[in-house]
Simulated scan of single mutants.
Amino acid sequence: MPYALFVDERQIGPGLPTEAAVWKQALDASLISDLPVANEAGGAVLPARYHVKEIREEFCAPDPAWRLPDEIS
C-alpha cells in the first residue's frame, strides 16, 4: 500500500511506495529538518496538523469494449 503526506485530512503529496519516501519528500520540501529515527525519543517531527498515513489508491481500467457513440441525439 502506498503512503502520502496529509494536512488535517487533505492529501497534499502524491502517493509514494514507502513511508520512508514520504518522509524524504517532507525533508525535501523543508517541512522537517531531519528524518525521524525509530530509536529516538518521541516528539512531533512534522509541523502541527501534518501527518503521514497509508492510502488506498483505486485505479479503474476502462472496459476495452466500450466506445463512444458515433452520433449523439
Rank of each mutant, 00 (worst) to 15 (best):
M1N: 09
P2R: 01
P2A: 09
Y3V: 02
A4I: 01
A4S: 02
L5A: 00
L5H: 01
F6P: 00
V7D: 03
V7K: 05
V7N: 03
D8R: 10
D8M: 04
D8L: 07
D8N: 13
R10E: 12
R10L: 05
R10G: 05
Q11H: 06
I12S: 01
I12A: 02
G13A: 15
P14Y: 02
L16Y: 00
L16R: 02
T18Y: 11
A20K: 15
A20I: 11
V22C: 09
V22E: 03
V22M: 06
W23S: 01
W23A: 02
Q25G: 09
A26S: 05
A26F: 04
A26E: 03
L27D: 03
L27G: 07
D28H: 13
D28P: 04
A29P: 05
A29I: 10
A29Y: 05
S30H: 06
S30A: 14
S30G: 09
S30E: 13
S30F: 03
L31G: 00
I32K: 00
I32V: 15
I32W: 00
L35R: 07
L35I: 08
L35F: 04
L35Y: 06
P36A: 01
P36R: 03
P36E: 02
P36H: 08
V37S: 08
V37N: 12
A38S: 12
A38R: 13
A38M: 15
N39P: 08
N39V: 14
N39R: 14
E40I: 10
A41G: 14
G42F: 13
G42K: 13
G43P: 15
G43L: 09
G43F: 09
A44R: 14
A44E: 14
V45P: 10
V45N: 02
L46P: 04
L46N: 00
A48L: 12
R49I: 08
Y50G: 01
Y50N: 01
H51N: 11
H51Q: 09
H51S: 11
V52L: 08
V52W: 00
V52N: 00
K53I: 07
K53L: 07
K53Y: 10
E54I: 14
E54F: 07
E54H: 05
I55T: 02
I55S: 00
R56C: 10
R56I: 09
E57W: 06
E58C: 08
E58R: 12
F59E: 07
F59H: 11
F59N: 08
C60H: 10
C60P: 03
C60F: 12
A61N: 11
A61S: 12
P62I: 02
D63F: 05
D63L: 06
P64F: 07
P64S: 05
P64H: 06
P64W: 05
A65T: 15
A65G: 07
W66A: 15
W66M: 07
W66K: 14
P69L: 07
D70Q: 13
D70L: 11
D70W: 13
E71K: 13
E71H: 13
I72C: 04
S73V: 12
